[in-house]
């Protein structure tokens, strides 16, 4: 039998007793039963209030002492916004670089195709012995010119391919940045999960989640202390160098 049912049974018995005593005209005994009956209710309310007071106090304490939450609100969330804006900027730049490179390569291909459109029919005429010596001299000059420019043009197309290739590095950089923002979101989630159980009723159902995220957060925190990841313009980490030139200077100091 649950506590709730036993309390109800007790209340019911007391109520019956109260009515019985009233009907019998035993006023004192009836009064006693009534006092006991209302007492049950009062005790219940009191216990709940005490518990609520305790929970409330604990939540407030937690907010006051948990510096991580303060750090999230003051520093890390604005940082995360800057990081995500940088992701937009990076992807935008990569897309534009790629599109421009495709446009340039396309122009070169069109130019080569136009030259071929002229050369191929002339070449056919030559094979059919339809060209005069003078016309052949012009054709051979055109072919020489085509060979010369083709070399440059192919190189140009290849350069544009390299541009497109290099533009794809955005995926690595933005991937690392987004991973960090996901870590931050998990940390915020974890802090909130820790606070929610204090309010009591969901304690059991959330306890499991809390331990899981605890471990996860720990290993991520370890990573945070050792590696900074891609530097974002305007929010470089302390001790970070300003790019390849600075790195090269340090390396040559170190004899590499």
């Amino acid at each position: 039998m649950s506590g709730f049912e036993s309390k109800n049974e007790k209340s019911l018995a007391l109520a019956r007793h109260y009515v019985k005593e009233l009907e019998a005209g035993n006023w004192d005994s009836a009064e006693e039963a009534l006092t006991e009956l209302t007492g049950i209710r009062e005790r219940q309310i009191y216990t709940e209030l005490e518990k609520l007071k305790g929970d409330f106090h604990e939540v407030l304490q937690h907010f006051n002492t948990d510096e991580t939450i303060l750090a999230f609100v003051q520093d890390e969330l604005p940082d995360a916004k800057k990081r995500l804006l940088y992701v937009i900027e990076k992807t935008d730049k990569a897309a534009n670089t790629t599109l421009s490179a495709v446009d340039s390569a396309d122009l070169v291909c069109e130019k080569m195709q136009k030259s071929l459109d002229v050369l191929i029919p002339e070449w056919k005429k030559f094979l059919n012995r339809e060209l005069t010596a003078h016309e052949f001299r012009i054709l051979s000059e055109m072919i020489r010119h085509f060979f010369e420019t083709s070399n440059k043009d192919i190189l140009e197309v290849k350069n544009q391919f390299t541009e497109i290739l290099m533009a794809q590095e955005f995926q690595d950089i933005t991937g690392q940045i987004i991973k960090r923002v996901i870590d931050l979101v998990s940390e915020v989630e974890n802090s909130l999960v820790k606070i929610i159980p204090i309010s009591g009723k969901h304690q059991l159902s959330i306890a499991g989640v809390s331990t899981q995220t605890d471990n996860k957060q720990k290993s991520e925190a370890d990573l945070h202390t050792t590696l900074d990841g891609p530097q974002i313009p305007g929010m470089e980490t302390k001790g970070s160098l300003g790019g390849q030139d600075d790195v090269d200077d340090l390396l040559s100091e170190l004899g590499i």
Binding site: D228, G229, G243, L254
Partner: peptide, 13 residues
């Protein structure tokens, strides 16, 4: 790598 902290480069060296 994207890591460019002075200490990290020294560590790698």
């Amino acid at each position: 790598t994207a890591e460019q902290k002075r200490e990290q480069i020294i560590e790698a060296a």
